[in-house]
Design a protein around this nucleic acid. Structure first.
Length: 720
DNA sequence: AATCGTCTGCTTTTT
DNA sequence: GCAGACGATT
């Protein structure tokens, strides 16, 4: 058995294990081995040539071009470990990621490589979390208060909706969503709000920005904008952080936007120890402001870097990689790369034509069912990838019919649920009563006799007086203008908040208890139960709320807490609550998604699939108009669609099926579809072209008994 | 204040 | 075809 096949076998036996332990490349030997390294249980010779070069390059700019499945995370963590083994102060190492998940994973891996106490000192955070950290300690220099609130997307939308309503003339219309996107784009390009307010969007932008500042709130983009402003405009602050972080590492560099690049530049001191890792071929977030040019023109931003290419793929079989390579080759403007793999794999990539989307879904569900029965392959090993979330519906139906467990990734976030937003708004209002958006959310939830009319009047007054809503509510003249009943309701509400605010700020206050008591006192859960028709629903919501409070309670106990930051200090109730809310705002943690054990077939968009891998992948809807999406052609971003396909293909470890339909239901009615123009870019020699009718007319293949027995043998640990 | 019905307008979504 | 927003109704 050759090396390649051995790798395949290991891969097949236990993909989870495989992804953690890379195969040793025989014949590679470390030329020297620092003893700290060996003691830390980390072996340099577990890396291939290129990986080793990346890991051991410690000084100056370093660009690691890491193709899909080439051990990117491993290299970053190994490099952090190596830096420390070479004598770098752990606290001077900063690794920046895009997701909390990636940061967490890295932290865990590092902890397994070096002393735990050392690993803890390394800063591993998302861009946004890093910015929050810098801003909490220095935003006052920019005229904000340090207790600022972070607005997530829906807070932002709420504020924008309000402002558009106030600003737009009767005949003017502006989609809040469009406004949000335009403003985000503006912020990323350093366009400040126009002073003239000529256009509606300009006026909305200007007012939005003023409103945020008055609310003492910042949106996600502001976190970066303000952080850049802080570092750029205040040399002393810049010097402080540059001295702190001497070694920078940035993951998924192809996804960074202008501001993030600027931030990296500002943080890198005179030594320019900046190591970025990424893959231009996997840049699929251009529409969100990501600049592929950051990685394509890295030399321009950080002159004379060392460039290391990781092209050895440990994930996919050769036919799959051949398809991926062939497709991506058609993109202009890329750093040429050619992924190689030792995993032979004799199964070709299947390209299957389907009559319509119904049968596409049905076929996939049935085939997964059949394959699971025949080979005993776990459902978790299968994934269906698609361009649009809406495509998951049909699949869900068919999977349910066959009683196949599945999980849909994406869709509604935990934090979009009403009850979660409500209780968070209560907490936010306690910390920052001037945050009108949170206040508006809770002012009459549950109903406490403050009518929409009253709120409207208070809001008007707050605009006139240029004060917060909370302040306006308490103006004596406002009270006088109200009927006695409303006046009393408002008095009670204001007192409620001030009381609890005071409780929160007493020394040694237990934030979770204060919060919980407030929710209890206003009778939130009781009200929730009353208004829920389905009892099950109410229970779920109640448990969501309790979970949230429970999480805070656990965090407040120091040892149970997972610290993002290395410094551990005693925290007041307000501080611990604020830290909690910061994390929540920056964490898009979705329920039930974290575990991939026992969760069944994965249904996921191509975007969300980046960074994941599955033994068996179905990539559906390869049709012109869907992938590439119609809109991309108008916007001239077909390259990015191709990268999307590339990302999809490279998720597959062992088998890959691509499907396209002749007809598909679009917006409620059937529409004819032609195959995606990307299909002709696929290499014929690694492709098996099929259509549903011929597959179905053939008798079902005899059970692959060999595979089944091999599986069973592996399961009971018998030699093969 | 809550609920019902009609209208609209459709990617992707790390924080 | 479906969800989300908004306006009219009770």
């Amino acid at each position: 058995m050759g090396r390649g096949q051995r790798a395949v076998k290991r891969l097949f036996a236990s993909p989870e294990k495989y992804s953690r332990n890379f195969p040793l490349r025989n014949g590679t030997r470390a030329r020297f081995l620092p003893s700290t390294f060996r003691m830390a249980g980390f072996r340099l010779f577990d890396l291939n040539e290129a990986q080793r070069e990346a890991v051991t390059t410690t000084d100056g700019p370093l660009l690691i071009l890491a193709g899909a499945g080439t051990g990117k995370t491993r290299v970053i963590t190994a490099r952090a470990a190596y830096l420390i083994a070479q004598g770098a102060d752990p606290a001077s190492v900063l690794a920046v990621t895009f997701t909390n998940k990636a940061a967490k994973e890295m932290r865990e891996r590092l902890a397994s490589m070096i002393e735990k106490s050392e690993a803890k000192k390394v800063t591993m955070a998302t861009f946004h979390a890093l910015c929050v950290r810098l801003l909490r300690s220095g935003i006052d220099r920019l005229g904000y208060k340090n207790n600022f609130t972070i607005y997530d997307e829906s807070d932002q939308m709420g504020l924008l909706r309000k402002i558009i309503n106030q600003t737009a003339a009767r005949d003017e219309k502006l989609e809040p969503n469009l406004a949000k996107n335009l403003i985000s784009k503006a912020k990323n390009n350093h366009w400040s709000a126009p002073a003239d307010e000529q256009t509606l969007i300009g006026a909305v932008y200007a007012r939005y920005q003023t409103a945020l500042k008055n609310l003492n709130a910042v949106d996600f983009d502001d976190l970066l904008v303000l952080c850049v402003q802080l570092l750029d405009g205040h040399p002393d602050v810049r010097a402080k952080w540059q001295a702190r972080f001497r070694y920078l590492m940035v993951d998924e560099f192809q996804d960074t936007n202008k501001l993030q690049l600027q931030l990296v530049t500002l943080l890198s001191g005179p030594e320019r120890n900046v190591c970025v890792v990424g893959d231009d071929d996997q840049s699929i977030y251009g529409w969100r402001g990501a600049e592929v040019s950051n990685i394509l023109e890295f030399e321009h931003h950080f002159p004379n870097p060392k460039v290391v290419k990781l092209e050895e793929n440990y994930r996919s079989t050769n036919p799959i990689l051949a398809a991926a390579n062939a497709v991506i080759k058609n993109n202009p403007r890329r750093r040429p790369k050619h992924l190689r793999s030792n995993i032979a794999g004799d199964e070709k990539v299947r390209l299957i034509q389907m009559p319509d989307d119904r049968q596409e879904a049905q076929f996939i569900a049935e085939e997964i069912h059949r394959r699971q029965m025949q080979t005993g392959e776990a459902f978790e090993n299968f994934a269906v990838l698609f361009r649009m979330n809406a495509q998951s519906r049909l699949l869900e139906g068919n999977l349910r019919e066959l009683k196949i467990p599945y999980r849909v990734i994406g869709g509604k976030s935990f934090f979009d649920r009403r009850e979660v937003k409500d209780v968070i708004a209560y907490a936010t209002a306690l910390l920052n009563p001037d945050d009108d958006i949170s206040l508006l959310r809770i002012i009459n939830t549950p109903a406490r006799g403050i009518s929409a009319m009253t709120t409207e009047r208070a809001l008007e007054l707050s605009v006139q007086r240029r004060c917060s809503l909370f302040a306006a509510l308490q103006l004596p003249e406002f009270a006088e203008s109200l009927p006695a009943k409303a006046r009393e309701s408002i008095r009670a509400f204001a007192r409620l908040l001030t009381d609890y605010e005071a409780k929160l700020h007493t020394p040694l206050a237990d934030a979770a208890a204060v919060w919980s008591a407030l929710i209890e006192e206003v009778g939130y859960l009781a009200d929730m139960k009353r208004s829920c028709k389905v009892a099950d629903d109410a229970l779920k919501r109640e448990s969501n709320v309790r979970d949230l409070i429970e999480t805070l309670r656990q965090r407040a106990q120091p040892e149970a807490a997972q610290r993002v930051w290395s410094s551990l200090d005693a925290k007041s109730g307000a501080e611990s609550l604020r830290g909690f809310l910061d994390d929540l705002a920056l964490k898009n943690e979705r329920e039930d998604e974290d575990d991939d054990k026992g969760s069944g077939v994965t249904l996921i968009t191509l975007h969300a699939a980046k960074g994941l891998e599955f033994p068996h992948v179905y990539l559906i809807g390869l049709e012109e108009g869907l992938l590439p999406h119609d809109r991309s052609k108008m916007e001239g971003t077909v390259d990015e669609e191709r990268r999307l396909l590339y990302v999809g293909i490279t998720r597959a470890m062992r088998t890959l099926a691509l499907t396209h339909c002749s007809t598909r239901i679009k917006f409620g009615s059937a529409a004819a579809c032609s195959p995606s123009s990307f299909i002709k870019e696929l290499p014929d020699e690694h492709l098996e072209r099929l259509d549903l009718a011929t597959i179905l007319s053939k008798p079902v293949e005899a059970t692959d008994a060999k595979a089944w027995f091999a599986k069973m043998r592996a399961a009971i640990g018998a030699p093969s």
